[in-house]
Amino acid sequence: TYTWNTKEEAKQAFKELLKEKRVPSNASWEQAMKMIINDPRYSALAKLSEKKQAFNAYKVQTE
């Protein structure tokens, strides 16, 4: 089980997950979700809006 003390740690864990699963920077949210949804870190960020925000930040960083 994973635990995160801060929102920032949770966001980092979520981005690490995207990186580890090699989600391409041109992937849509739907494509990315299919690649990461079974990992416990997918739940790091509770709100869908937070997940999408972190995903978009990840995409910008990896382009």
Rank of each mutant, 00 (worst) to 15 (best):
T62I: 12
V23A: 01
S43I: 08
Y58Q: 02
K21T: 07
K21A: 08
W29T: 01
N56H: 13
K52P: 00
K47I: 07
E63D: 11
S43T: 10
Q31P: 01
A27D: 02
Q12M: 09
P24K: 04
K19M: 15
Y42N: 02
E16Q: 10
W29K: 00
K11N: 15
L45K: 00
E63Y: 06
L18A: 00
T3S: 09
K47R: 09
T6K: 03
V23L: 04
K21P: 01
N56V: 10
K19H: 14
T6L: 05
Q31W: 07
K19V: 15
Q12N: 10
E63W: 05
T6N: 08
K34D: 08
Y42A: 03
Q53R: 12
A44N: 03
T62F: 14
N38Q: 09
L18D: 00
T3I: 13
Q12H: 10
F55K: 01
S49P: 06
K59Y: 04
A27M: 09
Q53I: 09
A10P: 03
F14H: 00
N26E: 09
E16I: 05
K34S: 13
N38P: 05
S25Y: 11
V60H: 14
A54W: 08
L48H: 05
A13T: 05
T1R: 13
D39K: 00
S28D: 08
D39L: 01
E50V: 03
F14D: 00
V60F: 14
D39V: 00
A10F: 03
K34H: 10
A13M: 06
M33C: 12
W29Y: 06
R22A: 09
A57G: 05
N56P: 02
S25M: 13
K15V: 14
T3Q: 14
A46R: 12
R41N: 02
P40K: 06
S43N: 14
A54E: 10
A57S: 10
E20P: 00
K47N: 10
E30R: 13
K7Q: 10
R22W: 05
P24T: 04
N5R: 07
L48R: 05
Q31D: 09
E50A: 06
K51H: 02
V23G: 01
N5K: 12
K21Q: 07
W4M: 04
K59G: 04
K47D: 13
N56C: 13
M33G: 02
K21D: 01
N5A: 15
R22E: 12
T62K: 08
Q53M: 12
N5M: 09
V23I: 08
E30Q: 10
R22M: 13
S28G: 07
L17A: 09
S25G: 12
F14K: 00
I37M: 13
E20D: 14
K34F: 10
V60D: 07
Y2D: 13
K21L: 06
M35A: 06
S43V: 08
E63P: 09
M33A: 08
A13H: 07
I36L: 05
V60G: 08
I37W: 12
L18Y: 00
E20M: 06
Y58S: 02
S25A: 13
Q31V: 11
K7W: 06
S25P: 12
N26H: 09
L48D: 09
S49A: 10
K51R: 08
R41Q: 02
N26L: 06
T6M: 05
D39W: 00
A27G: 05
Q31T: 12
A44F: 04
N56Y: 15
S25R: 14
E63V: 12
T62E: 14
K59P: 02
Y58K: 01
M35H: 05
S25I: 13
K51Y: 03
E9D: 07
S49V: 08
N56G: 08
T1M: 14
S43W: 14
N38I: 07
S49C: 11
A54C: 10
P40I: 11
A27Q: 04
K59L: 09
L48E: 12
E20H: 06
Y2F: 14
M35G: 03
F14R: 00
L45D: 01
S43K: 14
A32K: 00
N26V: 07
Q61I: 09
N26S: 11
T62W: 11
S43R: 13
F55P: 01
S49M: 06
A44H: 03
L18Q: 00
N38W: 07
Y42V: 02
N5C: 15
A44E: 03
E9Y: 04
K15G: 15
Y2G: 15
T1S: 15
A54D: 02
L18F: 04
K47P: 07
K59F: 04
S49K: 10
A10N: 04
T6G: 05
E30H: 11
K7H: 13
A27R: 03
W29Q: 00
I37F: 11
Y58I: 03
E9K: 03
P40S: 05
K21C: 08
T62Y: 12
K7N: 07
A13S: 07
E50S: 05
M33P: 00
E8K: 07
E20V: 05
K51F: 04
L48M: 13
S43L: 15
T6E: 06
F55L: 09
M35I: 08
F14S: 00
W29N: 00
Y42W: 12
E30S: 12
E30G: 10
I36F: 02
T6Y: 04
K52N: 03
A46N: 09
Q31M: 09
E8S: 08
I36W: 01
A10G: 08
N56R: 12
F55G: 01
T3D: 12
A44C: 06
I36T: 05
P24L: 04
E9Q: 06
K19P: 00
P24A: 07
A44I: 04
K7C: 09
K19R: 12
V60T: 13
N26M: 06
A44W: 04
Q61F: 13
K21R: 11
I36V: 05
P24D: 05
L17K: 00
S28L: 06
K15Y: 15
N5E: 15
M33H: 08
I36M: 05
Y42P: 00
A46G: 13
T6I: 04
K34W: 10
A13C: 11
D39N: 01
L48T: 10
K7R: 07
V60S: 11
Y42R: 01
E9C: 07
Y2S: 13
N26A: 07
E8G: 08
W29M: 03
Q61W: 14
K52S: 03
Q53C: 11
L48W: 06
L18M: 06
K59N: 04
K47E: 14
S28C: 08
F55I: 02
E50K: 04
P40N: 07
E30Y: 10
E16P: 00
I37H: 13
Q31G: 07
M35V: 05
Y2R: 14
A46V: 11
K15A: 15
T62R: 07
T1E: 15
